[in-house]
Amino acid sequence: MANLTLVQAINLALTQEMEADSRVILLGEDVGKNGGVFRVTEGLQARFGADRVVDTPLAESGIMGSAIGLAMGGLRPVPEIQFEGFLGPAYDQLTNHAARYRTRSRGAVTIPMTVRVPVGGGIHAPELHSDSPEAIYAHTPGLKVVMPSTPYDAKGMLISAIRDPDPVIYFEPKRIYRAFREEVPEDEYTVPIGKAKIVEEGTDLTVISWGATVLQCIEAMDNLPEDLSIELIDMRTIYPIDVDTIVESVSKTGRCVIVHEAPRTCGFGAELATLIQEHCFLHLEAPVQRVAGFDTVMPYYKLELDYLPDAKRIAAGVMECAAY
């Protein structure tokens, strides 16, 4: 066991998977000598060589498209897109090619690829470095989308992603890259894709979140009345959706608040709210409440903390839902 940050846990997972499987190679902008702009791949080029940790030309579509070719050629590429805002140029390769090849070739061509992407706001970054586009990719058939929020899950889910036979977008909430440490086993282990985690059990109200806002939810819960028993669920995987865990929880509590950074309209919370009304209608005591970003462009950093759901807004949402 070691006490690791999220960044260190990801680095450890990459190291161990590269040790175990020579098909695993990393590629992207600055991932080699520099170890990535967030130092996630620190030391890996020195350890595994420049043909396994590859500094590519600065072109996201090129990174994604050539990673697709690497995967078709029998490797297990792990491309990094430096910030989620730069997924734009790679969008076509990701959604029209990586996501579709298995279906359009009826299983003859498959893309076992893990796309690592730092995601979300809260680090005072420049424009297009703070968005939360997970719902776009959850809406794309053929892609799996994950976003761990703890070092333990980060390691186990990255190993699952790399071993997965299909393309996985592995979003890394950059705001909590170094926010806290956690005991992470030295041994390799997996955390399944498609399984949410109950962070805290409760009976009165369900709070659902993922990524960095899970921490904001925990902070909010510390300041809520003690007699309000809250069940906190960390989705961990955006797609495929763990419907069972949500339905079981909300059927029990009858109340649900969904928290995410991404814009409210057509955010992933909207899908969850629909699933809840489909499956838990007769158990509901209150409308499903969403505490989310707004339908605006993610503001530059002077206003980003006003935009992002914080403990205060989450607590207000919870109290409103609880009082309904």
């Binding site: 994604m64 070719g69 690497l70 050629g73 076509d92």
Partner: peptide, 15 residues
């Protein structure tokens, strides 16, 4: 869009 896939396939072979 497919020449990038050719580049990746050639890369896998070279690797």
């Amino acid at each position: 869009t497919h020449p990038l896939h050719a580049a990746g396939l050639a890369w896998a072979g070279k690797y």
